[in-house]
Design a protein around this nucleic acid. Structure first.
Lengths: 143, 143
DNA sequence: ATGATTTTGTTGCAATTACAACAATAGATA
DNA sequence: TATCTATTGTTGTAATTGCAACAAAATCAT
């Protein structure tokens, strides 16, 4: 077993971790500063918007966002309480429910986007070339 | 302002975010499964071990780990309660304290390393070449 | 069909993290 | 010096997340 702290993959991981923390932190701060909810709300609203009229099972939200089951359950509660989504019993599965975004939900997601987008851009001050972005993306895809 | 959801930098960010979530999740799960504490404990213990006899101010822990001030405060409390670190008043600064790792702390960090390391490797199944690792790392360094 | 297993979702409680206010010292400025 | 501001750290309380147990329905195996 490789126990070298400086191994390639660990270097990549640690670097990736720090970048994620730094960017997430600034994004969350700017969202809060703009009076908007946290990033995870955006994530869920976006997935629901993409899902369209069919909506999404909570299970699907879980898979898309990598949230835990119980966190999805409670987050959907909060989104519903805020009028951003609706829960309906699943027609073909007596256990679960289907979640649909409301027009208020769509409006909030749209309002969050420019703040989110700008915050991310601001947190990556280095201007990589289009080619570098492509290279980086294709390397990340392989992880 | 660019509001294109598919812009290069946002693609990179979203991909990076998902990778971080996936890997962190498996790492935390494997640590827990091995009866070991969470990743953030490892992070702090590692920084303290690197700092050596001089120890670290809590402020420095904060900067290295990107934790919030109050989280450092309470995490150091827990580490101290677990016998992994010691807090001493800072000689040259009446406000703060200096944190030192104990031998138990070093032992725990050492015990966590192989589990951590293997978990990360396992979470990156794709075998990138040494050259690709280098390319990826240098691109990440620029973010 | 029936019983066991898996999947889906919820909930009480514990642990952690976030927010806001605070105290104490250090450092800067008049 | 005296005062103002910034830095460092703590703590009460609220919000969120994690853990464990649970319920209900679907799926599988016999």
């Amino acid at each position: 077993m490789d126990t070298d702290p400086a191994s390639d993959i660990m270097r990549v991981w640690v670097r990736l971790l720090r970048i994620e923390q730094r960017v997430r932190k600034t994004v969350e701060a700017k969202l809060k500063n703009a009076g908007l909810p946290a990033l995870v709300w955006y994530d869920v609203l976006l997935e629901l918007e993409r899902a369209g009229d069919a909506g999404l099972r909570q299970r699907d939200i879980q898979q898309h966002t990598l949230l835990e089951r119980y966190n999805v359950s409670r987050l959907v509660d909060r989104l519903r309480d805020a009028g951003l989504v609706k829960r309906k019993p699943a027609a073909d599965d007596g256990r679960g429910s289907v979640v649909h975004i409301t027009s208020q939900g769509r409006a909030l997601r749209a309002a969050m986007w420019p703040v989110y987008s700008q915050a991310v851009k601001g947190a990556f001050p280095a201007q990589l070339s289009e080619q570098d972005h492509g290279r980086l993306l294709s390397l990340l895809e392989r992880l």
